[in-house]
């Protein structure tokens, strides 16, 4: 059967349940939540997690969350989860894992820093270039407010915040980030993070080539992927070494 853009879209809708699996940036499930599609099956919208949340972080989804209406959500940019771990044991159906009791094992998302707007990255850029654009202020907020300071977020070279895989996705850094729009965002578990996508994806972004991946299948797709090579792409090592063809001082006589 010939494939075109329309059949691709149709297949995308039919191959996955179109009624669940919606993700949005900074919109998280309560801690201990099972995988999103199983969560939607198990959650009976009883609102007990909302009841016990002492900070009022968990909200009941409204109509603009489609069929998820009534299910619990944490909107990290408004009020984050403070990992008090009161909600997992009260869930009657196991949509929140009742055995989860330690906050460091929570994985409801992962924070990703936008290096183009983060004040520290901008500061560092100015410092290197030696030209001020008016961003010269240092901000340590995300590192300071993180419940796992120097584990989930650490400061590289004492200035650049970097998120590690110990990030629980609680979203406190998002709530407190002083920039607008937020320079740090939490991707809920299950939502694809472009910054962490594989090499194929990165190459696509890097070269901007329009791939035909969407319409290829099976062997054709494998062939297409095999064509990719990294020849000519500059490796992004931490300390780039510049190699010189010749050096004045060391010319062999």
């Amino acid at each position: 059967m010939p494939r075109n853009r329309f059949t691709e879209k149709l297949a995308k809708v039919l191959n996955s349940n179109p009624f669940k699996g919606f993700f949005k940036l900074n919109r998280l499930r309560p801690p201990g939540a099972v995988k999103e599609d199983i969560f939607m099956e198990l959650c009976i919208r009883c609102a007990r997690c909302i009841v016990v949340c002492p900070y009022g972080s968990i909200h009941r989804a409204d109509v603009y969350e489609k069929l998820q209406i009534g299910t619990p959500y944490i909107f990290a940019d408004k009020k984050a989860c403070y990992l008090c771990m009161k909600c997992p044991p009260v869930c009657p159906t196991g949509a929140l894992d009742p055995k989860l009791s330690s906050p460091e094992n929570v994985r409801i998302g992962i924070a990703v820093i936008n290096q183009e707007t983060c004040l520290n990255y901008l500061y560092y850029e100015e410092e290197i270039e030696g030209v001020s654009k008016g961003y010269a202020q240092l901000c340590n907020t995300c590192n300071n407010v993180c419940p796992f300071t120097d584990e989930a977020i650490y400061m590289e070279k004492h200035i650049l915040p970097v998120v590690t895989d110990k990030c629980t996705g609680c979203g406190i850094c998002v709530e407190k980030c002083p920039t607008t729009p937020k320079s740090i965002n939490v991707y809920p578990t299950g939502m694809g993070v472009k910054a962490q996508a594989g090499f194929y994806n990165r190459k696509q972004n890097f070269t901007g080539e329009n791939t035909t991946e969407g319409t290829l299948h099976g062997d054709e797709l494998i062939k297409q992927k095999q064509k990719i090579n990294s020849y000519g792409a500059k490796p992004d090592f931490e300390y780039n070494l510049e190699t010189y063809e010749s050096r004045d001082e060391w010319q062999e006589q």
Partner: peptide, 24 residues
């Protein structure tokens, strides 16, 4: 006492709407 009429805890006694639990 906590919960709603979908599912409610009175002390340690759990009560739930049978249809809601059956559906899940």
């Amino acid at each position: 006492v906590k919960g709603t009429f979908y599912s409610m805890d009175i002390g340690n006694v759990a009560i739930a709407d049978p249809l809601a639990v059956f559906q899940s």
